[in-house]
């Protein structure tokens, strides 16, 4: 418990530091609007990262999320283009994401295959399926997109509205946190990631759980794909290559251990916001190349992993 609070604290400190830097160098940085935009801009990555958090806590990994996001976006764009109502298109996309994840989970569990390889195959597969649906970027033109979604934004202050994408993000954070902390399902995820053999002997339905965990990740990725269409007003089968790594980085910076058994959604939220803040700082600066964001994220990720390693070693030594 203490250990987890420590990482959350470290995250909060980094967040404050980044905000401090922003506040000192740029005016208008410490405003509600910037924060709301941060939420909205990082919503799709954050939602995928929440699904990833479940998977990583259970001791696995899901490399297919970015491809599923891209597939979902082009699937929705194409079906809406073909005349399907957007809400129906989204519902179908969510089902497909769930089924795709469940299939991956079943393969991993039933054939005892490494998650890395199964989801790597899934990554190529979903990416390819996206191209089959359509290989060009397709704009979505529908009242739901041009009107309804915009009207759903909640006014917070004068000229500041909480966009629907940010609302989705918040909803997933709350639901994910609840699921992990207050349900038996959540306990089982930790149990499997911490010691799968023991979990089985303690009566955890490991097989069924793995299917559900990957299904959940697929669902989150599809939801993230829906959010992407709100954000971009279009679908594109070739976008977001490598986004799964951002999702993994968010989870890891947020204190989720790749070895499984440890982590949580609040941490991942902070991790995602930290990544977003770095991005925002770079774009506020204006003259820095965007790739600097990657370099800072790389350094930060390394620092966090080192600190976690040191902490857990210290704690082990103290015993």
């Amino acid at each position: 418990m203490k250990r987890r609070h420590l990482t959350l604290l470290a995250n909060a400190l980094v967040l404050l530091l980044l905000y401090g830097i922003g506040g000192v160098y740029f005016k208008n940085f410490l405003t509600l609007r910037v924060f709301v935009n941060l939420l909205g801009d990082n919503a799709f990555m954050g939602i995928a990262a929440i699904g990833m958090t479940f998977v990583i806590i259970s001791g696995g990994i899901d490399l297919s999320v970015a491809s599923v996001i891209a597939f979902t976006s082009i699937f929705i764009a194409q079906t809406v283009h073909d005349g399907l109502h957007p809400w129906w298109a989204m519902a179908m996309a969510l089902c497909l994401g769930w089924l795709f994840g469940a299939t991956q989970g079943w393969l991993i569990s039933f054939f005892e295959l490494p998650p890395f390889l199964v989801t790597l195959s899934g990554m190529f597969f979903a990416r390819g399926m996206g191209y089959i649906v359509n290989d060009v970027s397709l704009a979505i033109k529908h009242g739901v997109y041009s009107q309804t979604i915009r009207n759903l934004a909640i006014p917070l202050a004068k000229n500041v509205r909480l966009p629907f994408t940010a609302q989705c993000f918040i909803l997933f954070i709350l639901a994910g946190t609840f699921l992990l902390a207050f349900t038996r399902f959540g306990r089982y995820i930790y149990a499997i990631g911490s010691n799968e053999a023991s979990a089985r002997l303690m009566g955890v339905p490991v097989h069924r759980m793995k299917i559900l965990i990957y299904a959940l990740s697929g669902f989150c990725a599809a939801a993230s794909g829906c959010v992407v269409t709100f954000y971009m007003q279009s679908g594109n089968s070739s976008s977001f290559v490598g986004l799964e790594m951002d999702a993994i980085a968010s989870a890891v910076i947020g204190g989720t251990l790749l070895s499984g058994g440890v982590g949580g959604v609040p941490g991942t939220f902070l991790g995602a916001i930290i990544l977003g803040l770095i991005q925002a700082l770079i774009s506020f600066h204006g003259n820095l190349n965007n790739w600097w964001a990657k370099i800072f994220i790389g350094i930060l990720l390394f620092l966090f992993i080192s600190i976690q390693q040191l902490l857990s070693r210290r704690l082990r030594a103290a015993r």
């Binding site: 010691n195 303690m202 058994g261």
Partner: peptide
């Protein structure tokens, strides 16, 4: 055969939690 990352209480009650 227990779960190292869970608490003592969570281990005793895993799968039998009061809900």
């Amino acid at each position: 055969n227990l779960i190292p990352h869970l608490t003592v209480a969570e281990n005793i009650c895993l799968g039998r939690e009061d809900r």
